[in-house]
């Protein structure tokens, strides 16, 4: 059955900075949590006027008691303006959109996120809290702020492992993929879920292929419509030995590592 897509104006409960680089936006929603699959996104209209014109897609970071949240980083004009919205302001969203992660057996699964890519993996973490989630961040302050946020969002912390580029005794020093290598040395996994910068995901894919581990990646593309009508968000995939286009918004945003044509 096709799931319902909501399109409504929502009141902001909160919009605040998390650490030095991230923001958390919470809004009241009438979306029923049973219709949300981890990895799905919402398309936000940042302002009522025409600049920026297009909606901006954000992964559903969390849902709790009628409140949905997204975790974001300022990348440009749209996210900059988003960060200036205040509690009580209205924001208009369409969602949940996309399909989220493909069904899998929890068994030996591992999640790996690079930077703000982590936003796409937390809701999964909340539901299946036995999956280790490895996150690569640049700064220690972000790591500490993130741990506080997890506590507040009731996402179990003991399975979350953070790598920080900045050398500090509290955390593993290095990238998310460095941390991944240490995990793979210790345990045999059969599925890796990942979201982050494309180059990082490509590295994760190469590591996984060598060890014969299946993969699912949450991809990001600039989107026109977010719901599969404009054909603006294509990704090249291999399908039955042929190259085809798929839509990140409608067919994804999650794709298996084997089908993606890595560039």
């Amino acid at each position: 059955m096709e799931r319902k897509i909501f399109f409504e104006k929502a009141r902001l409960k909160e919009n605040r900075k998390i650490g030095h680089n991230f923001y958390l936006l919470k809004f009241i929603t009438s979306v029923n949590p049973v219709v949300i699959s981890p990895g799905q996104f919402v398309d936000l209209r940042i302002r009522d006027n025409h600049d920026p014109l297009l909606r901006r897609p954000f992964s559903i970071f969390n849902y709790e008691k009628g409140i949905m949240s997204v975790l974001y980083k300022i990348q440009g004009r749209g996210t900059g303006m988003l960060s200036s919205l205040k509690k009580g302001d209205m924001i208009d969203y369409i969602g949940p959109l996309g399909n989220g992660f493909h069904p899998f057996k929890i068994g030996k699964t591992l999640s790996v996120a690079g930077g703000i890519g982590m936003a796409g993996l937390f809701y999964l973490q909340k539901i299946f809290n036995s999956i280790p989630l490895l996150i690569g961040l640049n700064e220690k302050s972000d790591a500490l702020a993130l741990l506080d946020l997890l506590k507040e969002s009731r996402i179990q912390q003991n399975r979350v492992h953070i790598a920080v580029m900045e050398k500090t005794p509290e955390f593993f020093t290095g990238t998310a993929t460095d941390l991944l290598q240490t995990f793979l040395k210790r345990t045999k996994y059969d599925l890796i879920l990942s979201c982050g910068p494309e180059a990082m995901m490509h590295s994760v894919y190469k590591i996984a292929v060598k060890k014969n581990i299946a993969t699912q990646f949450l991809l990001e593309r600039i989107m026109g419509c977010g719901m599969g009508v404009c054909q603006g968000c294509t990704v090249k995939v291999k399908e039955k030995g042929r190259l085809n286009n798929k839509l990140v918004c409608k067919d994804g945003p999650v794709f298996s590592g084997e089908e993606i044509v890595w560039t």
Binding site: H50, D51, L53, L54, I222, C230, Q231, G232, C233, T234
Partner: peptide, 17 residues
């Protein structure tokens, strides 16, 4: 790249997919 935003507009080059 198939779409880009401009002030109050967007440019598309979908190519009739």
């Amino acid at each position: 790249l198939r779409i880009a935003e401009t002030p109050a507009g967007m440019i598309n080059r979908i190519g009739l997919e």
